[in-house]
Every structure is written in C-alpha cells, then in structure tokens.
C-alpha cells in the first residue's frame, strides 16, 4: 500500500540570532489511508513544526531546508500558491491546540463554515448553509440551526473545538492533522473530543495525524506511533508494541514516567535532565546525555556517531544499544 502522506528526511530550520535552530532534523513519517498516526514527544521535540511543515505553514524565520513531502504521490514542496491553497483544507486539514482563538472572533461560526465550503466547492449559499448545519449537528453541537449564527466567544472550549473539527472536516479531507487537540480542554471534555475525532475519521475514512504529548490519548486513538526527540523520530511502531515492548530508552523512560492509576508510587519516575537546547545539540545520539541504557552498558559510540534509523520487526528505532544487540 502506498502511503497517502509521505515525509522523508524532512529538515525544518529556524534562523535566529543565536545561530540555526534545527527544530526538525531528518524526520521520516508515513501516513496510510484511514489510519491514525500518533506523534508524541516532549515540548520542543519538533512535533508541531513537523505538522506545520507538512502543510508548508512554517513562517519566517523558519524554513524547510531539506527532505521531501509527498501527498498522494505529488510533491508538496514544489507546489505553487494555488495548488497549496487547494491542498490545504480540502485534502489535508488541520486543527489546533487553542480552539477558541482559532475561530475568527467577529465572524459567526456558521459563516466560517459556509465561506470555506463556497471557496473550495461550487455550491449555492443555501446548500452551503444546509451542509454547515448538518456538519454542526454531526460534531454534536446541540440546536445547530440556532448556533449557526453564534460567535466564538459564546462557545465553551469544548464546543469551540467541536466547531473547529466541523470546519476542518467540512471538505472531507483525506488527512486531518490535529495538533494537541485536547490539551487545552477539561479531562471529561477531552474524552468526548477524542471519541468524536475517532468516529468522524472512521466514518469519512480520513487519516488522522495526532500530535500530542499525552500518551493516554495516543493509546486511545492511534494505530501507529512515532516518538520524537529533539527534532528526530527515535522510534516508530504500532501502538500495542509501543506500550508492551518499547525499544528506545527514551520511549521506555516516557512510559515509566506515566503515573499508573490506582498505584501510588513514592515518586514518579522522571527522565533525568531536559531536552537539549537546539543550539547546543549533543554531537552524536541526541538522547545520550540522559540515557540510562548508555550509562549502564557503558557505551562510547553514543557520543561519537549518530545512530541511524534501524528497521525492527514492527517498525523502526534509532539507538546504538538496539543495533549492537541485533
């Protein structure tokens, strides 16, 4: 099966006064038709920039300096402005972390949907209105006909995210990129939104790229997971394997730092240290300074040569310890 969205060796760099920041440095990702790909990682690991890069939404001083992005076999990086605006929203759509500020504050939510519909499709105002109302219904906005003329500030966070989902899915895109869609919401609302995303994407056959730092959300939704660290994918595998048999020391650390419901540990296990500053990257393996495995095995190569992405049974992993063992 060919991948719907294929990112290869993506490099997005930011030119700052303190030098070049390699926010995304050699990321490979594949999104197949209809699947849910989770991208997890700490803040600053480059997951949001990867997502933005996929739609070429990275602003100055950021720039995609290398790699390729292909949607359905077409090269996204060489598209002109017109092709890009057709791609965005129509084929690949995106929702963001802060739903309330992502809606235009002075235009009613209904009009925001109908304008999008009319921009991309050749339909009448009345058809657009009907479609918008049925969309609002399908994302669980009660009394959609009345709510059609509501404004963003009249909605709660959860409602606003539902509206955002309705807008993002209005044109039945084949890929939906959700950048931390539940981070700003209450836990109970989070569950509802996750359920909604799952249902709608399954219904429409839309592939979902879920960017999050919440492993719980990933476990709930994703088919496959890519774990990012310091601008690179360190491990990629299907969701069961990730939780049952994590390979990369960073993934192991992430999983063990999750509190287990019903068990009170003295202290949560944390990964020592912090994500390295992009301007001050470790020369070889980027996780090496924080890596328990490296210390316990006393490996030197981790500080000398960057590890390559290694194919495993269910996916791939970037670690010298695994490569040495196999």
């Amino acid at each position: 099966m060919t991948a719907l969205l294929e990112i290869e060796n993506l490099q997005t760099h930011f030119k700052t006064e303190g030098g070049v920041v390699r926010a995304v440095d050699g990321v490979d990702l594949k999104v197949n038709e209809g699947e849910v790909l989770g991208i997890v990682g700490e803040s600053g690991s480059g997951k949001t920039v990867t997502a933005l890069s996929a739609l070429r939404l990275v602003d100055e001083p950021g720039k995609i300096v290398g790699g390729s992005i292909r949607y359905d076999g077409r090269d996204v990086l060489s598209m002109n402005k017109k092709e890009l605006t057709q791609l965005r929203g129509d084929r690949i759509s995106m929702i963001f972390q802060q739903p309330r500020v992502c809606l235009n504050p002075v235009i009613s939510i209904g009009r925001q949907i109908t304008e999008l519909l009319k921009q991309h499709r050749d339909i009448s105002s009345k058809e657009a209105r009907n479609t918008a109302i049925s969309l609002l219904n399908s994302v669980g906005i009660p009394d959609a006909e009345k709510r059609f003329s509501a404004y963003a500030h009249e909605l709660s966070g959860g409602q606003a995210q539902r509206v955002m989902i309705a807008i993002a899915l209005a044109l039945k895109p084949r890929v939906l990129i959700a950048d931390e869609p539940t981070t700003a919401l209450d836990v109970t609302i989070q569950a509802q939104i996750i359920e909604l995303l799952r249902e709608l994407c399954r219904e429409m056959g839309t592939a979902l790229v879920l960017v999050t730092h919440d492993l719980g959300v990933v476990a709930e939704l994703a088919d496959r997971v890519a774990v990012m660290y310091a601008g690179q994918v360190v491990e990629e595998t299907d969701v069961e394997t990730l939780f049952s048999n994590p390979q990369h020391p960073y993934t192991q650390g992430l999983l063990s730092s999750m509190p287990v419901l019903g068990q009170r540990a003295e202290r949560l296990t944390a990964i020592p240290g912090t994500v390295p500053k992009p301007s001050d990257m470790p020369p070889a393996c980027r996780f090496a300074p924080r890596c328990k495995t490296r210390i316990s095995l006393g490996m030197d190569i981790c500080n000398q040569e960057p590890p390559q992405l290694l194919r495993t049974a269910k996916g791939s992993v970037r670690c010298w310890a695994i490569e040495g063992a196999s």
């Binding site: 939404l57 605006t85 759509s93 992502c102 235009n104 999008l116 955002m164």
Partner: peptide, 8 residues
C-alpha cells in the same frame, strides 16, 4: 494561522 491551514 487556522485560516491559512484551511487553504485561504
């Protein structure tokens, strides 16, 4: 940004 992501 959201509008741009939606292809405006």
């Amino acid at each position: 940004e959201a509008m741009r992501a939606l292809g405006a």
